[in-house]
Design a protein around this nucleic acid. Structure first.
Lengths: 201, 201
DNA sequence: CGGATAGGTGTACATTTGTACACCATGGCA
DNA sequence: TGCCATGGTGTACAAATGTACACCTATCCG
């Protein structure tokens, strides 16, 4: 399913606009650039291009992101490295960002949203050591056996997730530690899913 | 008139957002990323940065354009991932390259030259598991206690390097394995130095 | 002391913006 | 002939968005 000539013209306009202005055009700006009488004409072209995987639409103002045969180095992720997380605050906040690291997009699956520095050796049998950086996908859902970042009573921890009829258990992978049992009185939330790790020597 | 630390943090956030999402953030997205209670706090930072010539504001939705020392590509290495190494051949040849991966330059120290896929679990107590990718600096020198990639009689192996008055010992980090003793009759060479590892989940 | 500057709160408002819905025209194709 | 994708018109609306105004706090400095 290749882009039609009309769609290609829109794609070139997008690339041009982003290079020259620094931000994507709005739907109506595309409309006027091409002389359309309706914003819908431009919107349809955008959605057609999105359906072909040539760009992503965020649904927000100017939420256009070119992919693949497009603008910048497309195959690297830029992930924020989260440092100390203040109790009660969501993890994904600029205030926590220590630095940003570039990593190949194809490295982790699913695609992670941030990196977290591991503290402690409770996951040592999973090959996750103290001071390792783990790549985390921000999501509140997990299946049994997956490694998750969870928040229990304000503290952030990395454990194997397990849920059964008695409740949620956060299992370490180190015989020296015991499981965290989450009961109804605990403030509990899954922060994200483990996608892989990076370790500098 | 140099940007203040707070303004620098905003600038880094902008650059990062543009790289990762493909379009600039809105004023309110900046506000929420930093935990401000008012969109005005973010807007003021933007206008302060604009007054310093570090960016341009178009007055439209996400109308932020970085100037000068802003957008450029992150500092990334492109490392070849070495697949199966044929006996007798040097590691660093084109024929062995499976693919190339981009990784942040600041991640590993010293700077590695290639990636190697680990086979086996002889280094499990060092947190190096089967199928991990390890970053290797190509060098023939090593000090005691360092993790090295070595070639013994044609076979490539990852072990802890130790040299004493009796000769060279290649120590596993797994009690189930025993050390490789290198004597004068062996064909032995240090291929490189372990710099870190990457693991996809 | 007094004043300027950086950084921030709180509220309000006119535009901008993405999208939804209904409808029309053309051309390829089975 | 009927069908469907492409490309387009016209209208409407809730949400997102930049900005203006008033006011607060702390720090630095002459």
């Amino acid at each position: 399913m290749a882009p039609t000539p009309a769609q290609l013209k829109v794609l070139r306009f997008l690339r041009d606009h982003i290079i020259r202005r620094g931000y994507p055009p709005s739907v109506r700006e595309i409309q006027h650039a091409f002389g359309f009488a309706s914003p819908n004409a431009a919107a349809k072209h955008l959605h057609a291009l999105a359906a072909q995987g040539l760009l992503e639409l965020a649904g927000r103002a100017r939420g256009i992101r070119l992919l693949g045969g497009a603008l910048p180095a497309a195959d690297t992720l830029t992930l924020p490295l989260i440092g100390k997380v203040a109790a009660g605050m969501p993890i994904l906040v600029e205030a926590h960002v220590e630095r940003n690291l570039s990593l190949d997009r194809s490295l982790f699956k699913p695609e992670p949203d941030y990196l977290l520095r591991v503290v402690g050796d409770s996951m040592i049998d999973a090959g996750i050591l103290d001071a390792d950086l783990i790549a985390i996908r921000h999501t509140p859902e997990a299946r049994n056996g997956q490694i998750v970042v969870a928040r229990v009573d304000g503290a952030v921890t990395v454990k194997v997730f397990r849920r059964d009829h008695r409740g949620v258990h956060l299992m370490p992978r180190n015989p020296a530690y015991s499981a965290i049992e989450v009961d109804a009185t605990s403030d509990f939330a899954i922060e994200g899913l483990y996608c892989g790790l990076v370790r500098g020597a």
